[in-house]
């Protein structure tokens, strides 16, 4: 069996911008006041009276896209954020995250924030507690127009997998200046999909990455020095004794 890739498939054409998903997520995950794990972006189509053809308004629900190439993971020094090889989720290990914030600008979709209460990185996690209880993620469960389908897109037997296979050619994703290959797919026109910015790795993390080889080289050099000394001690014996008198008074 192919490995899992949990993903969200959203029929954006069904979204009525009612924010049920936004509030359901907030309550389910006890997200602090003023912070949100998901959103609906309205496409600002200018109102044009009359019949089609005219630009119809579109609403684009979004959240962490559990990317194939997650730039947030690259920005995390500890692996507290990682792509779970078993499910394809981008996971935050809250116990390991200390809230350094490196991953936040690293997400081109601004899906991450520092939770004011836990003080750790936060984002959509597909509601693991609910899934453990056999329920769909809160946003999927509550959606009035059932615009969302969640599941393993690599399993053709699942709703999500079947939908994914059937519509592969017309599914769209949000594009960012840094391509992260998101796993949030839109069926139906989600409106402008090129708003993703560049993934920004903070200067401190860049410094850490750049200094790492230098540090490794220094440690290596020091190690080589020690080896040289050890070698000299073991093989060259007391050849220097005459010139370098050690302890004549002993």
């Amino acid at each position: 069996m192919a490995k899992q890739q949990l993903a969200m498939l959203i029929d954006a054409a069904k979204c009525i911008d009612c924010k049920a998903c936004v509030l359901a997520c907030k309550v389910a995950n006890e997200v602090p006041d003023g912070q949100w794990r998901n959103w609906i972006k309205p496409a600002d189509a200018a109102p044009a009276p009359g019949p089609a053809p005219r630009a119809k308004a579109r609403f684009q629900p979004g959240a962490c896209m559990h990317c194939e190439k997650p730039t947030c993971v690259e920005a995390c020094p500890t692996g507290a954020t990682y792509k779970d090889p078993a499910t394809g989720e981008v996971v935050i290990d809250e116990t390991l995250c200390i809230g350094c914030g490196n991953c936040i600008p690293a997400c081109p979709y601004d899906a991450r924030f520092r939770n004011e209460l836990t003080r750790k990185a936060d984002k959509c996690n597909y509601c693991p507690e609910r899934r453990a209880a056999g329920l769909a993620p809160a946003c999927v469960d509550t959606c009035p127009t059932k615009a969302r389908v969640f599941g393993d897109i690599n399993d053709p037997g699942s709703d999500a997998g079947a939908l994914y296979l059937r519509n592969q050619a017309r599914l769209t994703r949000v594009a960012a200046k840094t391509d992260t290959r998101p796993n949030m797919y839109y069926l139906g026109d989600p409106g402008p999909g090129d708003w993703g910015r560049e993934a920004v790795v903070p200067a401190s993390m860049v410094a850490m990455k750049r200094s790492a080889p230098v540090i490794k080289a220094l440690v290596g050099l020091s190690g080589l020095g020690v080896l040289a000394m050890l070698g000299r001690q073991l093989f060259a014996g007391d050849s220097g004794e005459g010139d370098h008198k050690e302890d004549s008074d002993a």
Binding site: C18, A20, L23, V27, P144, K146
Partner: peptide
């Protein structure tokens, strides 16, 4: 239709 809107969710 098996849904709960934003207000429904805000019932808590």
């Amino acid at each position: 239709r098996g849904m709960l809107c934003a207000r429904g969710n805000a019932g808590v």
